[in-house]
Design a binder for these strands. Sequence first.
DNA 1: ACCAAATTTCTCAGATAACAGAAATAACTA
DNA 2: TAGTTATTTCTGTTATCTGAGAAATTTGGT
Lengths: 173, 173
Amino acid sequence: MKLTPTMEKFILHWGEMGWRWGINRSVAQVHALLMMTTKPLSAEEICESLGVARSNVSNSLKELQGWGLVRVVHVFGDRREHFETLRDVWEMFLIILRERKKREIDPTLQTLRECATDAAKDKQEPPHTGERLAELIEFMELSSGWADRAQAMSPAAAKRLCKLGDKVFRLVG
Amino acid sequence: MKLTPTMEKFILHWGEMGWRWGINRSVAQVHALLMMTTKPLSAEEICESLGVARSNVSNSLKELQGWGLVRVVHVFGDRREHFETLRDVWEMFLIILRERKKREIDPTLQTLRECATDAAKDKQEPPHTGERLAELIEFMELSSGWADRAQAMSPAAAKRLCKLGDKVFRLVG
DNA sequence: ACCAAATTTCTCAGATAACAGAAATAACTA
DNA sequence: TAGTTATTTCTGTTATCTGAGAAATTTGGT
């Protein structure tokens, strides 16, 4: 698996971007590599292609499987596990949306609600604390609702919705 | 500026969440603190409240001003600069959207396009590389378009759109 | 111009995360 | 069951990030 210059460039950039969004660089790079290859790769091949340690690849693949972005595939005549990522960008997007909602929005909403009830009980608490929290909660609840509806869509429907473009925004002038 | 338990809890959580999205913990904490206070705070006060070094606060505030999330305010009879964040969650959201688009989506789109033209030139490049890149580019372009339209909205319009909820999704069945 | 206060920049230490390599475990084959 | 290969877990090192404190600079007042 010798990488072409184009692939290298893409992998480097994807790693960097993933990192900016709180994803480990190696994890993002493994994902990028799998996106660029059609055939499933063994851990060994990923390792060689990216020039990172075997153990690192193993952990990155586990992480990506945890996100549901990478699947194990078996190849005839080969004991080793092979790995592939989803081929549909839209499906990937919806999965990431679902996971980040579960991992970040839901817990945040819960914390905010706890804070709000605490603030309501505690007489020491200045009144604006509750107000600010209420605004945040409203925002997060609406985001949460959108995320739920979005992830309930098929990838094709998501694509269609995006393509509607201006029509959607015209709903609110 | 003694913090109430509720504020502390919120600040800790916001710091953690910001960190998961690639924002420095202190930066997110300063932001959280400013969200929870109505009156503008001096760097000194922020420093004491959060128990971090003065220099750290200085840098965090610079970072937040770079995002456009924090503004300098002057207070009568006080030489020192005071800081406040936006009071509207929706406006904050739109600003973050705009910034992240500028910092991450736009450069990614540019890199992807460069990769695509490189791949088209290079005869060594397997054909599926170009196909995959084209899919990614389409996705990023649509995202980019949505982000542009969203950031062109007023915060109030954004809120209205979110509240429409199901109606939007029914556009695509 | 000088002094004092405020702010920023610089440097360095500590904490954390990333990663390589070794060791251990598991899975398959004969 | 022994031997081989694949995979994971563990451990220690390296790199990176974070943030404190000092030093330098800027700003404002007299």
